[in-house]
């Protein structure tokens, strides 16, 4: 499989400013030294609890937020060094689907205006062609052609999310970063939207970076899964091996929390104690050592490397 996107040592620290002159007193390490590779046609699921930096990672990859350091290389071009103008052609290649279908559409535009805007920005196609493409895409995402003159407030959450997906597809991108695209929808609609995204992946040969916190959704949807904790990637593996045999203690705890739909099923629940430490002042060494049941002395001092322990399987833990 060909490499589509390579992320190397990506960091994003947000300064915390306080006081009269707004001095920087500390930094929130939202994304801290994350590296991974995306291959063409795959779906990389990114999971972790809220506040672990999943969304920031997605936005930094897209250069909506400029990273503090690190590289994002898309098909051999380093996006991090580019300015607004140089990035423009890559905007057509990488698109984003947002979490909140209520906030991601401008309420003062009709669906048609929303969907034609990408063409206006990039000055593509004639008026007639734009119109045709809108009709075409609406059908593809399962909306009625006649709905193009309506405003977002007339749609349900699921329908709005379909409009959001349609907008992301207008420029025919290769990579779509989906930032929790289904977590604001109710479960029956979630399934519809996920199926739609899978169909579209086949049709358009899309690659997804799928950010979510719902482990069963990720299991259904992804080819590989990355687990994040406190701004760092702790484990990255093929879906089947990760769900069957998690290596990192945090992944184990996370997976043990997934409900099993079976009467009387017995399983071991790993309960994590305490709260997630503040990303403003993360623990030394391994960030997970404060809550880890396998914690050793070395964990408190040395930060574990994110290394390949088996073929295609990366873990950041001193146990391996």
């Amino acid at each position: 499989m060909a490499k589509l996107l390579q992320v190397t040592n990506l960091k994003k620290y947000f300064p915390v400013k306080k006081g009269l002159f707004r001095q920087t007193v500390s930094e929130v390490k939202a994304v801290d030294d994350v590296s991974f590779t995306l291959y063409e046609g795959e779906t990389l699921g990114l999971v972790g609890e809220s506040g672990c930096g999943k969304s920031t990672l997605g936005r930094t990859v897209l250069q909506l937020i400029k990273p503090t350091s690190g590289e994002v290389v898309y098909r051999g071009s380093n996006l991090t060094d580019m300015n607004f103008r140089e990035l423009r052609p890559f905007r057509k290649e990488i698109q984003m689907i947002f979490q909140d279908p209520y906030a991601s559409l401008n309420g003062r535009q009709t669906v048609k205006q929303i969907l034609q805007e990408p063409f206006q920005i990039h000055q593509l196609y004639s008026r007639k062609e734009r119109e045709e493409r809108v009709q075409e895409i609406l059908e593809k995402v399962g909306l009625n052609k006649e709905m193009s003159n309506r405003y977002p407030h007339e749609f349900s959450g699921g329908q709005r999310q379909r409009v959001g997906i349609a907008r992301a597809l207008m420029l025919e991108p290769s990579l779509i970063i989906a930032d929790e695209p289904v977590s604001a929808l109710d479960v029956s609609v979630q399934a519809q939207v996920i199926n739609l995204m899978q169909d579209l992946q086949e049709q358009y040969k899309l690659t997804y970076l799928f950010i979510a916190h719902d482990l069963s959704v990720v299991k259904h949807f992804s080819t590989r899964v990355g687990v994040m904790y406190l701004g760092r990637m702790v484990e990255l593996a093929e879906k089947s091996s990760l769900y069957k045999r998690p290596l990192h203690p945090y992944t184990k705890a996370l997976l043990s929390a997934v409900p099993v739909p079976k009467v009387g099923s017995k399983r071991e629940r790993i309960i994590l104690e305490g709260d997630v430490p503040s990303p403003e002042n993360p623990p030394t060494g391994c960030t997970f050592h404060t809550r880890c049941s396998y914690c050793m002395n070395v964990c408190k001092q040395e930060r574990p490397n994110f290394k390949e322990v088996e073929n295609g399987r990366f873990v950041a833990c001193h146990l391996y």
Binding site: R91, I94, F98, S104, L105
Partner: peptide, 17 residues
């Protein structure tokens, strides 16, 4: 800071637009 503005930035829209 709303997502629809972010979506425009992701599409490559300029500040003026």
């Amino acid at each position: 800071n709303m997502e629809f503005v972010l979506a425009q930035r992701a599409l490559g829209a300029g500040h003026w637009h």
